[in-house]
């Protein structure tokens, strides 16, 4: 496997405080990996994801994705980068309410200038929601909305799929389904970087778990056999949480 993401000595300080800050984080992600980033609220895990997506810029340090130094890109360059290489799944789906499910899925492709309605329908079919293609988000359940969001994230065949608490707004059953879906995508070769606070979910599907606390990566567990090492990861997290 080759390296896809490289974060080097990343520091991020928000104006007015240190909440969500990162302090000297360095980490790499290989192509094809399913990496989970775990940590309590305010630990900096979402910040890490945003930096990789080019949605935010580090205070210092560098972010490289697929050999591209994001720090050297302007706003338009970052937009093109996201369009071409990133698929983003949000906790609250962030579907555009006045577009149908199909239209939502097509948006990134259309922004890129490609017309792929066939692929959009294929994705909806693949994710088991082809029947909601012409429905508006308000008419969909949370699980359906998140599947539409995943289809939207996949429409441009992203190099890297980022998911920020994708099950956070879902009930347990829907959350399980979404995670199953991500696992399937990973098995098909998709590189995934997942932010979650649910250790069980993370260890069940991810091959690697990064634990973030107070802006630092405090643990980097590669799970050869998830079932065997999950308890270890959970233990590490419990200890960190109790400090």
């Amino acid at each position: 496997m080759s390296e896809l993401v490289r974060l080097t000595d990343i520091t991020k300080v928000y104006q007015g405080g240190i909440t969500g800050a990162l302090n000297g984080v360095s980490v790499t992600v290989e192509r094809g990996e399913f990496t989970a980033i775990m940590g309590p609220s305010g630990s900096g895990k979402s910040t890490l994801l945003n930096l990789v997506a080019g949605l935010d810029r580090p205070t210092s340090g560098s972010v490289e994705v697929g050999g591209t130094d994001l720090g050297k890109l302007g706003e338009a360059g970052l937009a093109r980068f996201r369009r071409d290489h990133i698929g983003f799944v949000f906790q609250f789906f962030h579907l555009l309410p006045n577009l149908t499910a199909l239209e939502n899925v097509l948006i990134p492709a259309q922004l890129k200038g490609t017309v792929v309605p066939g692929r959009a329908r294929e994705l909806l079919d693949l994710l088991g929601i082809k029947e909601v293609a012409d429905k508006y988000p308000a008419r969909l359940s949370g699980g359906q909305q998140q599947r539409v969001a995943i289809a939207r994230a996949l429409i441009n065949n992203p190099t890297l799929l980022l998911a920020d608490e994708p099950t956070g707004a879902l009930d347990m059953h829907s959350g399980e389904q979404v995670m199953e879906l991500l696992g399937r995508l990973h098995r098909d070769g998709q590189t995934i970087l997942l932010v979650t606070h649910d250790a069980k979910l993370a260890t069940r599907h991810a091959a690697r778990v990064l634990s973030v606390l107070d802006g630092k990566i405090v643990d980097d567990a590669r799970l050869e056999s998830p079932e065997r090492t999950a308890s270890e990861v959970i233990r590490v997290r419990s200890e960190e949480a109790s400090r």
Partner: peptide, 12 residues
């Protein structure tokens, strides 16, 4: 913001 996250450029 969502559109920007999906790759819409400032010009767009």
């Amino acid at each position: 913001a969502t559109l920007k996250a999906l790759g819409m450029s400032p010009r767009q």
